[in-house]
Structures are given as C-alpha cells and as structure tokens.
Design a protein around this nucleic acid. Structure first.
Lengths: 156, 156
DNA sequence: CCAATAAAGTCACATATGAGACCATCCAGG
DNA sequence: CCTGGATGGTCTCATATGTGACTTTATTGG
C-alpha cells in the first residue's frame, strides 16, 4: 500500500488521478451502501439531492447538475415517481418539459442518507486545517466555474 | 446553467460535490471516447495506465490503485491477456498471485489514449495560476495520504 | 503438524448503464 | 403560416458492473 502511495505521482495525469483516487474512496462505498439499504439507483440518489435543494426543475437540469446521462435520469425519475418520492407536472409554458417536485416521503428518504454522506465528507477533509479547507474549496470553485470553457455540455 | 452554478453551493456536501462535478466532466467523456474507439473497458484502461508505470504488480494492487472492484479488474486482466496487451506469470513465492507485465502492444495502445487525457487535464487546470496549481496538488496529496485513516480498503 | 482462517483470483447471476433511435413539442427563417 | 431543425424526454438493446459464492493457496495458532 505504500507501493500505491509511491505510484500516485507516477501516472501522467497526476492531479486528475489524485482527485479520482480520493473521491472514489469517498463516494463509492457511501453510494453503494445507499443503493443496497434504500433500494435506490445512483441517478435516483442524486435526483433527490437536487430536488431537496431546489424544486420545479427539469430532468435536463438534473443531468447537468449530476453528470448522468439523460436516459438514466429519465429512468430514475420514472422510478422515483412510481415510489411516490417525487411528483411531476408538465410545464404549461412548454409541454415538452416536466417540472419536478419532491414529496414529503422523498424528503424523508433523503434525510435518511444525507447525514452519512456529510459525516464521511468531514472525515475526508479532517486532515486539512480550516484555512486549507477554505483554500481547497476556493480552488474547486474556480475549477467548477471554468468547466464550461473546456467541456461541452453534450459530452455527457 | 447559471442555475446550476447557483446550486453548486447548495448541496449539503459542497466539497465532495464540487470535486465530483469537475471530475465528471473531465473523466466521463474522455473515458467513453477511449472505450468506444479502442474497445477497452474502464478496468482495462486503468490497468494499462498502472502497468505502463510499474510492472510485476498484482490484480489487488490495481484494485487499490484504481478503486475498481476485484471482479472487474479480474475480468479486465483476462480480456487484456486475450488481446495480448499484457502477460501474467504466477508468483513463485506465492502461487495465488499473478505478476502482471505490459506487452509492447499494450504500451502502444496506452500511448494512443494518454495524450488526450493529459491535454484535457491541462485544459481543466488552465484557469489556475502556477502557484494555485501547486497548492491544489499539495492539498490533494494531503487528502490522498489521509485516505487510509477514514476509508477501509475492503470498502471498495 | 494440522485445522481454521485469510487472501488472491474467478465465476454466475441479476441489475444498472451507455448508445442511439424514436416521438412529441417548440422555435426560427422563409 | 409552415417547414426544417432543435430540444425534452422515453424506449430498446447490448454491455459493463455489483454481489456473493467458490477454488486454490498461504498463514497462523494450537
């Protein structure tokens, strides 16, 4: 395992690799646990996360937010509706769109899995000082704002 | 899409979410392109990346390096061997293990896809100053070193 | 030395995903 | 208007993945 530490700097895509390395350990186990225990798929999980924060959005918005393909988000939304975790109304102004709203049951389910995600994020960041954390977040914001300049939306 | 920017800070797991957001846009399109054009799966791609850097390692090492599950890495290795992109010898010192070596054909294939990954990483980071990039990498190193303290290996 | 346990890797099965076609609706330019 | 293209969303099919059981070999403790 020290072997691995030594290799971290060895790939030709150091920074991206390290981001992936850290994020994988954060994300994969957490999400798999949610999938198993609550019977949700990944698109369903992120859809609830998004809707808990903002309602009246569309499937496309969730694609952009989450980076999941539209086919998967579509399936997720259909499944969530079937489970009564969200509700959808077609947009009067554009009949192609469906505006999405989370139900109380949806919020309740969200509330069941988000604390573990929050705690695990804290554990991940625990090795940084408060200042470092702020700086890290600042740099991430900069990177996130810059994404549209090099990535095309339809690449997802 | 400004809607999305506004939401970035809105989830309850800000930093992890932002890491995922940026990384998704980097990684998904690049990897899908490689998958399609070169007929490799993700475990195969990362296995070649690892082997190009260090040979004589085992499947478990690649699991740890890549965060992929051992079943998938196993399948990837079998496929890569079938395509003559790697070679494996059982370890004399421990007959359970197989030591992996990349073939010239494997290196050649690696060389076909790594430049695009490198370029895209540069594009992703272009918005940071040289100093910021160094600092970002330093913080990532710190986070990566800290991973074993909060994540169990078998969680993958 | 032997039994119990752990580790490396493979397999079979069910499921989630990616690709791309498809339908309906909207919008812009003639 | 109305016609060609774009956009939102769904579907089908093939493939990749997650899970857990299984085989083989090592190791540890009695």
């Amino acid at each position: 395992m020290n072997g691995i530490a030594a290799v971290r700097g060895g790939t030709e895509i150091k920074i991206a690799y390290k981001m992936g390395y850290v994020l994988n350990f954060y994300r994969e186990p957490s999400f798999r646990k949610i999938e198993m225990e609550l019977g949700l798929t990944r698109p369903e999980i992120v859809t609830l996360i998004f809707l808990n924060f903002r309602e009246g959005v569309t499937a496309s918005d969730i694609c952009e937010f989450s980076g999941h393909l539209k086919a998967n988000i579509s399936r997720g939304i259909i499944a969530l509706e079937k489970k009564k975790l969200l509700r959808r109304d077609t947009d009067r102004a554009d009949n192609r769109r469906q505006l999405l709203f989370i139900t109380p049951a949806g919020r309740a389910l969200y509330a069941q899995y988000i604390p573990a995600l929050r705690e695990r994020e804290q554990a991940m960041l625990a090795c940084l000082t408060r200042t470092e954390r702020k700086e890290f977040e600042r740099l991430l914001d900069k990177l996130a704002d810059h994404v549209p300049h090099w990535a095309a939306l339809d690449e997802l």
